Amino acid sequence: MSGTEVRANKWGVGVELAEDHLGPIRFLAAISGREDDLRLGLHVLPDQQMLHPLVNPEDAKAIRKKVEKNVAETLARGGLEGAQTRVELIEDDEIERGLCEGGERLGLDALVIGRRARRDEDPIVRLGEVARRVLRRLPAPVVVVPPDFGSPGDAGLGKGPILLATDLSEHCDAAASFAADLAARLERPLILAHGTQAFHWGVSYIPAEAMARLQDQARSGADQKLVSWAKGRGLEGAKHEVFMGDPVKHLLRIADSEDAAVLVTGSRKLGAVERLFLASVSSELAAAASCPVAVVG
């Protein structure tokens, strides 16, 4: 995507004061090398008013100063320091609310956060409640990063392309712009991935050759729609891939096989009732992918 102009960004990263959760900071250090990029380390601490009268004003000031120092040191250990790196302390009794409202107030171009699961493990809780709630609100494009990203022995940023997952709806327009900008920033190719529904009816009695023709026709039609969609957004030079079936399964496969640097997807922002019945593809990808996943609303 060499024709895309790379612009300066105001990046935010949620900072956890734990040595084994430096992944989001390392990721931001890897992609924000421009001199005019601004990197803000966001850390949420309890609202001082909630602690009153346990903490007097002098103690509260000392606590903030100590936390600010700890956050700055954590950012530096992850590779973020210098004049374009700043600490933003946010007082709130709910971490996800503090991150979301802080991100909106600061006008972030993107917010980088961590998830619970490392790349090499498969626990019951993969995403974590804070990350899940931030993805529901999407105060800005949110990039979810494994906590061990870039740690000793970890490969860090993939050597492959930026992978954009699209359902060709308006929900993916902002994601397309974000992915193109990221591809230009990292000087990586862009791959577009689009899925079409698999056939579930008549599989048992339709002849195999006829079923193969139907599937080929469905893929061909989806490919033509993807080409048209890409052209309308200035992405006609991007490689594209069409799959049939479960989008999470196939997108994870493509991301792994291509060694994708980042997987970018749009979001429909499901309501509370919808979430009871429908799984969010973007949240599932963010929880399971081995690479960072950017969710753009």
Rank of each mutant, 00 (worst) to 15 (best):
I124S: 14
L99T: 08
I90E: 06
K231E: 14
E241S: 11
L99P: 02
G107Y: 00
R137W: 00
G160K: 02
D36C: 08
S151G: 13
V144K: 05
D223S: 15
G245F: 06
K159R: 14
L285Q: 09
P53G: 09
D92W: 04
D92N: 14
A288R: 15
H43S: 12
A193F: 04
P247L: 00
L157E: 01
G221W: 02
P292I: 03
R133G: 05
A83H: 10
V125A: 13
V15N: 02
L99G: 04
A174L: 11
R105W: 06
Q49G: 15
S151A: 15
L214C: 01
A183H: 07
G114W: 02
A279K: 13
E129R: 14
D109R: 09
K66M: 13
G271V: 03
L285W: 06
P24H: 03
R219K: 15
T4F: 10
E170V: 13
V145Q: 06
V134I: 11
R275V: 03
R119L: 07
L252H: 05
V15I: 10
A131M: 07
D109I: 03
T4K: 12
A294V: 05
R77M: 05
V112M: 10
L42D: 04
G114H: 00
E88F: 09
R233K: 13
L226I: 06
I254A: 13
R86N: 11
H43Y: 09
L42T: 07
A261Y: 02
E241H: 13
A210P: 00
L51H: 01
E16K: 15
Q217W: 10
P46W: 00
V130E: 08
L28N: 02
V264F: 05
A60L: 04
G23P: 06
D20W: 04
P207T: 04
D120L: 12
S257R: 15
D259L: 01
L182E: 14
A230G: 05
S169W: 03
V44H: 06
R26K: 13
S220Q: 15
V248Q: 11
R34W: 02
D223Y: 10
